[in-house]
Design a protein around this nucleic acid. Structure first.
Lengths: 344, 344
DNA sequence: ATTCTTGCTGAGAGCGCTCCCAAACGCCAG
DNA sequence: CTGGCGTTTGGGAGCGCTCTCAGCAAGAAT
């Protein structure tokens, strides 16, 4: 049975209040008393009871990481673990704890509780001080619940609601850079494999693609735009659909899809970059390891995760400021072999 | 301000106790009263306050997933996300919540709190009912803390302590099957790239390797045993060290290391499987996607995660049973192209 | 010497829930 | 009509903490 505040107080010969002041680093405790209390705390291994503290303070120091729906993608794409590491690191650094809420579809069928009910349950039960949402689709009900229940939250990815705080990378510019690079190399029939278009990141990257072509006066050929789902298989399938239209270059909106496309091309006997140029997006570690190494748009995935947490924490700890926070991180074109430029 | 039990009670014209009985599905409430209470709960969107409940019941319905030390590996190896999905699914299914504790080394230097202190803090503050530990090294201090503080826990992977519950796969048999397969194909100079030998999984797979050779009367050549670290780079480096000893086949203790080895071989101008046979371990999705597709030992990673959680929950909900629970899941040899047998 | 600060300490109430116990309420048998 | 019994209900205490407020001592100001 671990000791309580009360017991520590008795052992140190002071009152509960004083011990409470000591652990919460409040002033107005005589140094010698403070030291005596610390000594007892050390000896007993006392640690405040989280639930009791939460009940009194109405804060838990726990933030949630909610990853809805598209779970399948997330577990095949290296993006996710990297993002999570950023999140976890930032939590550790600020002494917050991380609650992970993953919802897979399978849960839906025959499960005692619907995903929707689960959201509500978690949010309303005040387990969490705030929430980071990643990779949600535009229509995900989680946003509705979050706003309704007034739970502070930060989205990793853009979201157009006046009360939505988010951290995003500049997907439009990133995609445009990628396509502009292909244009510069002389390509004109440039195809794109998009992400699922119910996600902003996918929409924005498509927008960047369009902008680059339009700026160059090249008309958009809708046949050269195929929707993928951010997975390798999806990329492979999309590439197959693209092949009849004979693009000379492809911009895939994620590295995993690019790798899938690579496979489809290889199966078709096409060489990259000799026969067709390929550019990805994300710069996951795998991108530099495939053959040919992937030219891609690097986004600071880990930083995205930690920034989201930092933002959320600053929101939690300065509730007076009603301002909405939005951060957009830059992307960077990483030129490797797959686009057909010799790398020195 | 969300409603409290008290308020729901007032609205339904009953006492706190009755509402509590309704929420906790206890008997001895008149059906009509029960229905009336439910109605109010529905209308108000009432959800019990987690902290208050925990304080009274001394349970949180939160379990921790602790992933110590070797974080780097974990974030490049697809093993980890798959395992986590199993864990998350099982939690969802049982209405438990998942707290994720990742500790990266970087945290160590200059951080306000040491990893050790963090463990203690989390465990002692009673945030968690129990803990699942994955991928720990043998000497990880977390085990000490867990045992000392009497926190129920389940390890994913073997651990030789009389009070340690674990879920593991049969690494010895799996490795032996892999090597026996290579023997059957006529190989005699079989090398192995082990995992970090301060992990049981690595030790056990090495043991399987040894058993297979010894059973066949082939002496162990220590030059053919090289320690890796479960990463692709590690596998690549290990393979390079192995090359001078000219093995005709290699058993890598993880798919990622096998893929690294593949790279090293290719760089050296060797073809797989023609010049050298290669077998991996894990059967991560990537294994079937590389060229040549990897022969490997499949372990039920996701099931490992969910079993660990199920075990832990059964421990938590039947505390009377003092028995130690140990589950060992079977592995399965998956024959693909990299070992040199034509797959029909 | 008296009042006013100021710094330190302790007591009490309360956070929202559970759980034990006693009271109230039938209902049936005697 | 009363006693006994099982079911249903309500009240109180308590889980371990924080936080406000009042008390107290000691030094500063009058």
């Amino acid at each position: 049975m671990p000791p309580t505040l009360e017991e520590v107080a008795k052992l140190a010969g002071v009152s509960r209040s004083t011990v409470s002041r000591v652990i919460n680093q409040q002033p107005n405790v005589r140094p010698e008393v403070r030291e005596r209390v610390w000594e007892v705390i050390r000896q007993t291994g006392y640690q405040p009871h989280a639930a009791a503290r939460s009940l009194a303070t109405r804060r838990t120091r726990v933030i949630g990481l909610v990853i809805p729906q598209a779970v399948t993608t997330l577990f095949t794409d290296p993006y996710f673990p990297i993002f999570m590491r950023g999140v976890a690191d930032a939590c550790n650094a600020h002494n917050y704890h991380l609650m992970l809420s993953l919802f897979s579809h399978r849960r839906a069928q025959g499960a005692p509780t619907s995903q929707d009910a689960l959201y509500q349950q978690i949010l309303r039960s005040r387990y969490l001080d705030g929430v980071v949402v990643s990779s949600a689709t535009l229509d995900d009900p989680v946003f509705h619940h979050l706003l309704e229940d007034g739970v502070p939250f930060v989205i990793a990815g853009r979201y157009p609601h006046e009360r939505a705080n988010y951290v995003d990378v500049d997907n439009v510019v990133g995609a445009r850079m990628a396509v502009e690079h292909l244009l510069r190399l002389g390509h004109e029939r440039i195809a794109t494999i998009t992400g699922p278009l119910n996600m902003f990141a996918a929409q924005d990257r498509l927008e960047g693609y369009r902008q680059a072509l339009t700026a160059r006066g090249i008309p958009i050929d809708e046949h050269l735009i195929v929707e993928g789902d951010f997975t390798e298989q999806g990329g492979q399938a999309a590439m197959k659909r693209l092949l009849p239209y004979r693009p000379t270059a492809v911009f895939a909106a994620s590295d995993m899809m690019a790798i899938g496309a690579l496979k489809a091309l290889r199966e078709d006997g096409l060489r990259v970059p000799e026969d067709i140029a390929l550019v990805g997006f994300d710069d996951v570690p795998l991108a530099s390891m495939v053959d040919p190494a992937l030219t891609t748009v690097r986004q600071p995935i880990e930083q995205l995760g930690s920034m989201a947490v930092e933002l959320l924490i600053s929101l939690l700890e300065n509730p007076q400021r009603e301002t909405v926070h939005r951060v957009v991180l830059p992307t960077e074109l990483v030129i490797r072999a797959s686009c057909g430029v010799r790398v020195r």
